[in-house]
Write a protein that binds this DNA or RNA. Structure first.
Lengths: 155, 155
DNA sequence: GTAACTCATTACCCGTGCTAACTATTCCTG
DNA sequence: CAGGAATAGTTAGCACGGGTAATGAGTTAC
């Protein structure tokens, strides 16, 4: 398995499997920290709120508990996030039709508009960085993203 | 550029470059959240503190400012982290030899012991997850990690 | 019909990032 | 060489976002 010809920019490669876990963990933490800083200034929603809004836009209305599971967060945390989104008018809460314990959260028209309007701009920084990479590097990240997400979903 | 033969497990691939930024961002955030939960219960140090300790173990003593830059954090944040590490006895602070404005932070024997003893265990969860991946997937992550770290270092 | 369970919430705590303002030191410049 | 600018670190204070524990409302099972 020779990759030498299509990785001109980044030479450093983590070799051992033991080290991979460490390196990957640190890389993910640093990049996340970097990303948290880069949100668009005229967007008053946090990255977590936008993430939840994105889930609702993609997968449709769901309960608070389902949202918490999807984002790998405890229910109280999601309650707070959802409350913020309701306050800003980006989601609406309504009771579940049959099970009145549950609260169904649905993205509002404003929220959907925000997602649509923001989609192109909110990733500006990362997208710009990605353009500076080589096509081969982008290809690696394109394949790595779903693997990372898979890891995040493991028990 | 055909990768089809070495990606059996994860089929989903982010296709557009615009979508890549979004997907990568969300994947990184979710995995980081997952990782934050997985720290070893009998380790009283946070993941950030362990990260700083790891940098000191790998690259040797450095100033607070250099540490802040390395971890992509503002100086006050690193001051607090270093103070915690000093309080737990994992680092020692000493004045810079020539420039007395600077404070040089050095890992202590206890800190080095903690890093060494912890190295095998602190990544247990991620390492275990990694073992469940195919060799091809691990190869992707092995190449992705430095790219992600590179992204985190961009302006 | 009551006990056990589930979903969401409230209250509270902690870690960790930030900015602004301050002190101490060093550097630069007239 | 004096004095202002620049740099390193710290302190203080704020915000966000995670967590657990406890509570209330609703459902399910016995």
């Amino acid at each position: 398995m020779s990759y030498a010809n299509d990785m001109p920019t980044v030479e450093k490669v983590v070799r051992s499997d033991a080290g991979l876990a460490s390196e990957l963990r640190l890389s993910v933490m640093r990049l996340r920290r970097r990303l948290a800083v880069e949100r668009h200034p005229d967007n008053e929603l946090s990255i977590n709120q936008m993430s939840v809004l994105g889930v609702l836009a993609r997968r449709g209305a769901m309960s608070v508990g389902e949202l918490a599971t999807a984002e790998r967060v405890q229910p109280p945390s999601m309650t707070r996030t959802v409350n913020c989104l309701e306050e800003s008018g980006d989601v609406v809460k309504r009771p579940h039709e049959t099970d009145r314990r549950q609260i169904v959260v649905e993205i509002s028209e404003q929220g959907r508009g925000r997602v649509a309007a923001d989609r192109d701009r909110r990733d500006a920084w990362l997208a710009r960085c990605l353009l500076e990479l080589t096509p081969a590097e982008r290809a690696i990240l394109r394949r790595a993203a779903p693997i990372l997400d898979n890891l995040a979903q493991k028990d």
